[in-house]
Amino acid sequence: MRALSVYRDTTGSKLVLDDVPEPDLADGDLLVEALALGVCGTDREIVARGPIWGTERPDRLILGHESLGRVLEAPNGAEISPGDLVVGIVRRPDPVPCGYCAVGQFDLCENGQYTERGILGRDGFGSERFRLEQDYAVRVDPALGLAGVLLEPASVVAKAWEQLDHVVRRTRRRALVLGAGPIGLLAALLGVQRGLEVHVVDQVEHGAKPRQTRDLGAVYHSFMEDLSGTFDAVVECSGVLVGEAIARTAPGGAACLVGIGAPHGAGTVNLGELNLDLVTQNKLVMGTINSNRSHFEAAHQALRQIDRRWLEGLLTDRLPLSAWRSAFDTSPERIKAVIEFDA
């Protein structure tokens, strides 16, 4: 079968579409036919810099952690049946789990010995067929169609909003999202669904990003200078506007950092001024990464509540497997590139 594989190379790593063996039963009791694979900045970073090579298969990693597939085989009596659409949860806890992993909160792993499908130590979902454990398969409403591939990135912002819901106790009115990529627009969606006045900032002035923002009923800004006032909740999705995120957080509010930029890409921070701002204004700043089953389920509920046409509007680049290379190109106007295995 065909798969997108990253190989160790003398210059770092290389990505190819090649033939690989059928998935091993040890990877899960569900056999899944891949329908779509989302490509994000994490995938591009792995291709550019190489994955953290595991010891079991040191020279090859099947890429892909944003999945959508159809179950081909399932054990008798399983809750998931052949024909069901599923998305794979990405992270797996340490075999000797920490306290968080032991209760299913492996996204908060303390010992760092987890693995992640398509990212760290385990093959991903970028093959024509893959295996999945029932406990790490999330059944998807067929009404979502191809937009079901957005479930994994939506789970990340569902976790971010869960954290914001816990810490911003007062009545919230305004939310700010920095970055209008798929993570940012999904963060805006969840903010709108909470009844907030949502503002989104990105660098482009025209195209899909402003349109998708306005179709949500949110306010789009192509420049930070267009903003006025502060915001009760801020979600920083770009990785380069950390200082602005904190500065725009209202007294008693919170900022959640989701994006990871290049080293020093967020500029310099005066720690003394930052300390004064956070302490005297009762602000909270937190970071979040990855997600667990509860966040996938919350994301699924959120996606089911929005018009499917809006979700499909995020899929600006739908590519057949034969054109997979184009999925790894970038441009400011693009939102989400998706590889369709059955196209």
Score class of each variant (00 low, 15 high):
residue 168 V to N: 03
residue 233 A to S: 15
residue 246 I to L: 15
residue 107 D to Y: 11
residue 239 G to E: 11
residue 237 C to G: 13
residue 343 A to F: 03
residue 310 W to S: 04
residue 54 G to M: 14
residue 32 V to F: 11
residue 126 G to E: 07
residue 19 D to E: 15
residue 202 D to E: 13
residue 328 F to Y: 15
residue 184 G to P: 08
residue 239 G to D: 10
residue 247 A to L: 09
residue 295 H to C: 08
residue 328 F to A: 05
residue 276 L to A: 14
residue 141 D to L: 05
residue 117 R to H: 14
residue 77 G to P: 04
residue 216 L to M: 01
residue 293 R to H: 09
residue 212 Q to R: 13
residue 220 Y to G: 05
residue 196 L to K: 08
residue 315 L to M: 10
residue 3 A to W: 07
residue 323 A to E: 15
residue 2 R to W: 03
residue 316 T to G: 09
residue 212 Q to D: 00
residue 148 G to W: 04
residue 174 R to D: 15
residue 85 L to D: 01
residue 159 K to A: 08
residue 213 T to S: 01
residue 124 G to R: 01
residue 219 V to W: 04
residue 37 L to I: 09
residue 78 A to Q: 02
residue 284 L to C: 13
residue 120 L to E: 05
residue 24 D to I: 01
residue 282 N to D: 15
residue 26 A to I: 06
residue 158 A to D: 10
residue 29 D to L: 09
residue 15 L to T: 01
residue 162 E to C: 02
residue 230 T to H: 10
residue 217 G to V: 02
residue 140 V to K: 03
residue 71 V to C: 10
residue 149 V to D: 05
residue 6 V to D: 00
residue 208 A to T: 03
residue 45 E to V: 06
residue 100 Y to F: 15
residue 323 A to N: 13
residue 57 R to H: 11
residue 268 T to Y: 02
residue 232 D to M: 07
residue 251 P to F: 06
residue 303 L to E: 10
residue 266 A to D: 12
residue 309 R to M: 10
residue 210 P to H: 03
residue 48 A to N: 12
residue 218 A to G: 02
residue 14 K to P: 00
residue 340 E to I: 03
residue 184 G to M: 11
residue 123 D to N: 14
residue 293 R to V: 12
residue 208 A to I: 06
residue 153 P to A: 09
residue 298 A to Y: 10
residue 219 V to P: 00
residue 42 T to L: 06
residue 104 G to C: 10
residue 123 D to R: 01
residue 140 V to D: 06
residue 101 C to I: 07
residue 335 I to M: 11
residue 27 D to P: 00
residue 241 L to C: 10
residue 125 F to S: 00
residue 282 N to Y: 13
residue 245 A to Y: 08
residue 317 D to A: 08
residue 305 Q to G: 07
residue 338 V to M: 05
residue 66 E to V: 11
residue 41 G to W: 11
residue 97 P to A: 03
residue 105 Q to H: 15
residue 313 G to R: 05
residue 70 R to F: 00
residue 213 T to C: 07
residue 170 R to V: 08
residue 66 E to A: 05
residue 83 G to R: 08
residue 329 D to S: 13
residue 293 R to C: 11
residue 45 E to S: 14
residue 79 E to K: 12
residue 2 R to L: 14
residue 79 E to F: 05
residue 13 S to L: 01
residue 125 F to M: 05
residue 318 R to G: 00
